[in-house]
Design a protein around this nucleic acid. Structure first.
Lengths: 364, 364
DNA sequence: CTGAAAGCGCTAACAT
DNA sequence: ATGTTAGCGCTTTCAG
């Protein structure tokens, strides 16, 4: 059933039917009623969205691009929180939110054709690596786009945090407590899915801006304390889940020189570290200190509650949404911005065992 | 930049360019290369998705309809889990997932026009009330649709659980422990946003199938135990959050006849009940037993761990996805189905105070 | 292997 | 207040 057939049935022009739906003011109320009545009778549901989009050159849909399979996003509390903030804004603006399917290819990256095939007015690019072909494909479409947690790209608005400074603060906290043997559990450095200890070369060549910056922050703080960065083991996880953090901690804690503290790139990973420590009979923070990143709710109620770097994912999503909406409307909106972070010290960090003994009980 | 202009530039027909993208086999490799090269040079990104959808009468997108503002879905662990299962299947089938924006109207329901305006090949209707105009609008479009957690509608495939039997089991557990004064914290009975104790009339007229069935299950078990259902206070919350559960418990626990056990329609609500009990200085399960519904991860690590009804939300989403995909492809797929549930007894339930005293210490 | 014709359903711009 | 014309960008069908 089409607009034209409803018009035919009624003996009016197609425009009149179209106007009944889109411009009530250009139509007598009576005729409008008759149009709807006829439409109802014929089972016409209003203008076809695709025809309308083609004609208006507008879909009223925002596309979300994610670096991993979509279902992973729903496993990550940080991503969920981001989507909540984003969806609140897009729904408020009456825009649909399209989760773009980009089945991962063999290279580990996601299928760049996905960007070309999405019927959207703009993109929110979330947590993607710098060289991902999908990112290039999306930006190449010359639609409004907002990039989240990425480095600045000429002309592309972005939202993020100062990852390097935040990481530096996290590491600084451990250093101040007196730790000298640190370990890092990082999420992916590149989309190739590799897991294991990453050498200096791989660290420097990291394609994920976020991972690279955090590593740089950890490194900066450690070198400022005159400790040798090359001796800090960096275990790379191809994702951000407790299971991967668990495995990483297993590897790090069985090293000859076992770290007394672990810096994790996310709370999910840190939660896995906590679980691994418990299994190994190590007490946290007695034998091992752990710092997370993100401040997701689960971290606050973990055992022990996690020291972490707080960032507001909800606000990140909301801000990205507001930026994109104003871009779509051609209005001025919020500009590129780095959101604040804050170190939240809870119970998963303490001085290293040696010092604690010295302070706690070993007086002359 | 359009397909036709690329064709013009190359001196071939539009069809040839179209085929380069869609039917590589109908084209010499050399020509195909030249087409892509020219496209690249002109900044053409491949066939426009909207034009293509209009012509093919297919969008390769599945729409998700939700009873509440979309952002609420991301607050509800059960919904998130459902979306994870669903998105894994749709992405596997190379379909986009469109979160349809249906800004809520004044009646509390959601805007039915949203369904008409979504450019999709089919719908997944999640957790919607029976009489929601949006539901009717969606089904009226005569697209393939799968309804989740809803009652059977002639010809519309559905996925759900046996809410009544599951609720009956939950209530039965409390009754077996010896509880005689129960209270219920239910989520919405109708989309009108009302909060407070619901009388029998409102209970019977509940527009949300899930709420109605669970109430019926609770009631059945209670009446089977020869206890008077009308004396069981049912507090209705217009959503499923810990904050609402907290408020509900506040009301229920300040009643003259304070319940010794509370049945909550979701773990989120139950978690709020736990918090309220703690604030009131009531020990759970010492002074108060609490049973949730859903078995979300937070329930298992709550203090005390929550007794609840387990259901597999992930599988629910996955099954709904598989049903819709096979419908879209015109293949046979899984049929309508009720997924299994199971009562998981943890530490939030115990015999009521009176009996515990009698059993515990007061022997002759 | 390549192309011509036709039309998917709609609405902007311009009449009347 | 209503109608006419044109064309958004693409691909199906059929012919070479």
């Amino acid at each position: 059933m089409t607009l034209a057939r409803v018009a035919g049935e009624l003996g009016v022009s197609a425009m009149t039917v179209s106007n009944a739906y889109n411009r009530p003011d250009r139509l007598s109320g009576a005729l409008r009623e008759r149009v709807f009545e006829t439409a109802d009778r014929l089972g016409y549901n209003g203008p076809d969205p695709v025809g309308r989009s083609l004609r208006r050159q507008r879909t009223d849909v925002v596309g979300v691009l994610y670096s991993n399979p979509l279902s992973y996003a729903f496993d990550d509390p940080a991503a969920v929180s981001f989507l909540r903030g984003l969806s609140a804004v897009t729904e408020g603006a009456d825009l649909g939110l399209l989760l773009v399917p980009a089945a991962s290819g063999s290279s580990g990256g996601r299928d760049p054709r996905a960007a070309a095939q999405a019927a959207v007015d703009g993109f929110v690019v979330y947590s993607m690596s710098d060289e991902e072909p999908l990112l290039a494909a999306a930006l190449g479409r010359d639609l409004p786009a907002v990039v989240v947690d990425q480095p600045f790209r000429e002309g592309v608005p972005f939202v993020g945090i100062d990852d390097e400074a935040a990481a530096r603060e996290a590491a600084g906290h451990l250093l101040e407590l007196g730790h000298e043997r640190l370990g890092v559990v990082s999420f992916a450095l590149s989309p190739d899915g590799r897991e294991g200890v990453a050498d200096l070369g791989r660290q420097g060549g990291a394609a994920f801006h976020v991972s690279r910056s955090r590593l740089r922050g950890y490194r900066g703080a450690i070198e400022d304390a005159d400790l040798p960065w090359p001796e800090v083991p960096v275990y790379e996880c191809p994702g951000s889940t407790a299971a991967l953090g668990h495995r990483a901690a297993g590897a790090l804690l069985s090293l000859q020189q076992r770290p007394t503290a672990i810096l994790a790139s996310s709370d999910q990973l840190a939660l896995g570290v906590l679980a691994a420590a418990e299994e190994l009979g190590l007490s946290v923070p007695g034998d091992l200190s752990v710092v997370g990143f993100d401040d997701v709710p689960q971290g606050a109620v973990a055992d022990p509650p996690l020291t972490t770097v707080r960032q507001d994912h909800d606000e990140k999503g909301s801000l990205a949404g507001r930026m994109l909406v104003s871009l779509l409307r051609g209005e001025d909106g919020p500009g590129p911005r780095r959101l604040p972070t804050r170190l939240v010290v809870r119970a998963s960090t303490a001085p290293p065992p040696r010092l604690r003994a010295a302070t706690g009980g070993a007086l002359p």
